[in-house]
Design a protein around this nucleic acid. Sequence first.
DNA 1: GTTTTAACCGGCAACGATTGCGTAAATTAT
DNA 2: ATAATTTACGCAATCGTTGCCGGTTAAAAC
Lengths: 336, 336
Amino acid sequence: MYKPATIKDIALALQLSPSTVSRALRDGYEISEETKKIVVAYAKQVNYKSNPIALSLKNKRSYSIGIVVPELANSFFSQAIAGVESIAYEKGYHTIITQTHDSAERELINVNHLAQRSVDGLLISMSAQTSDYSFLKNLHDDGLPIVFFDRIIDDIDTFKVTSDNFSGAYNATESLIKTGRKKIALLSNAPQLSITNTRLAGYMKALADYHIPFRTELIRNCSKGGNDYHEVENAVKELLAMPDKPDAIFVSSDRISISCIRALKNLNFNPKEIAVAGFSNSDVVDLLQPSLSYVRQKAFEMGQIAVEMLLKLIESKYPITEFETKVLNTELHLIK
Amino acid sequence: MYKPATIKDIALALQLSPSTVSRALRDGYEISEETKKIVVAYAKQVNYKSNPIALSLKNKRSYSIGIVVPELANSFFSQAIAGVESIAYEKGYHTIITQTHDSAERELINVNHLAQRSVDGLLISMSAQTSDYSFLKNLHDDGLPIVFFDRIIDDIDTFKVTSDNFSGAYNATESLIKTGRKKIALLSNAPQLSITNTRLAGYMKALADYHIPFRTELIRNCSKGGNDYHEVENAVKELLAMPDKPDAIFVSSDRISISCIRALKNLNFNPKEIAVAGFSNSDVVDLLQPSLSYVRQKAFEMGQIAVEMLLKLIESKYPITEFETKVLNTELHLIK
DNA sequence: GTTTTAACCGGCAACGATTGCGTAAATTAT
DNA sequence: ATAATTTACGCAATCGTTGCCGGTTAAAAC
């Protein structure tokens, strides 16, 4: 079996006590320079690396942070994770990434696993299908530092960072209106997500500002969040089969934007006939056909900010009671 | 701080010894049914969960496996990871995912971190920029179970799983030839990757079989693996500026396929003028414009097979000396 | 009635690293 | 020359859990 050198091994080989070796390696003041040299040299020779597991057990600190996202295949999340890593590595923390596939059950399992493997803190963007947040609340009450990003929740009082989803949705809707569209459908994600509702509000405000009546029959919730393509295709099909059918679709979810484009293609719809705008952080969204205007979130920055908040929580000597929710603006990219 | 209940806490509360509690919870034969009931009930009440860190320290088993991939944002890898997870969770293992961004340095750091956090084994697809495999070889020689997938290497003797890159490349090239293309350029990844060379061989064989001369000036290595778009754009630009310029491009790398498409669009090239075929597991490749024929790998299955191999290594009582390299076939999707 | 034999449970040590405390020897101060 | 201090190190406990060795009862066997 794989068996790295330990402090005891070194102590035995050098006829010293483990304590002395430990202190020598950490450059303790009570160890003679000569001894230090010997120990350090031998440690290097046998490629000694301190055992993080043992340290975690003793210190209850692991210098690793857990990341929980719905779906790695979603560009937004992989970009956010890259942002997290850029800061975390710099500060000496490692990241442990898990995905929930938008399943509440998997989310519970993953979060508990991370908590028990004593991550020092948790970055989480909630699964679309989670409605019971008590497991997170319990962990948080027990003192586990948690920061929410993107898909945040109200029930837990801590640092949060998300996009200005209201304005993003408003601007996207407005851009459709400005190109003459008046019957704008909305495809959205599961209604228990914070972002779903905020984006709905932005959409409604834009309609109101331009005196376009709000029609509930133009709203479709795809509660499986685009994990089920057929749910989206059916929604699109229904919309386009309406007698007074929409001339545009605003998609308020990243995954569903792509599914919507695919549905329009599969249903052989003329791109001129129906305009699409949607949230998307896909790195190929500009190459898609039918094309769409898209709202891009600052995913990388969001990851960076989230982890900075988390590290503040982790490294604070005293409990923090004043929390902030940061809101990042979005960028609207129009079809050329 | 977050402080879960321990066996000691239970022992103290129930006036028992820690050993008794431990055995009661694991249903040891030497504990009376009555005591077991009491202990189990109390453990449930205080939500006792065994501390995996302590267990790892003691047993040198963590029931977690490390996954190292170049890039999470690459659909191929996120699909493979999903495959790994599907099996791993079922068998009671957790996954710890890290990405290298194709950096040799980051790969070294991540692998060492995983090894020291005592993962029971490692699944790895090599970074494009790694040329020194000694760190892996050392770990492997020390007994750490390792399975390579997709981007495998020859230097280490263990289980491996990859795609039939030769046939994939052959078929894609052949499809271009069959549509009348004769001057087929090749865009490929870093030459130290196994897959790069195998795909090159498939490309060359197809040319040879159809009596098309092989021209080195039509080969371009993008050694940054598509992480640098401009590298790809320049390669495309150069190819298309040649006096006897190619009428088709075969892209032998997932990431670069997308970059190539983007380059052709940015350079305003007529899709009729130049046909493209490439490896891609993107879930939107069928929606891209300019469109391309694409070779799809069985990423999910590859992840499943890789983890099954790894679990065989991990759970085997005796050292395994007979290793297998599994090769999965690919699917060619032609432009409609 | 004495010995065997279960059934049940506790104590100790160990996994690897750290740390407060104790202490011997060496050095300095008086 | 003696006391006070410094230097340099070892001991033992700790984190949570489990394996191993005991030991104490009681019932069963002789």
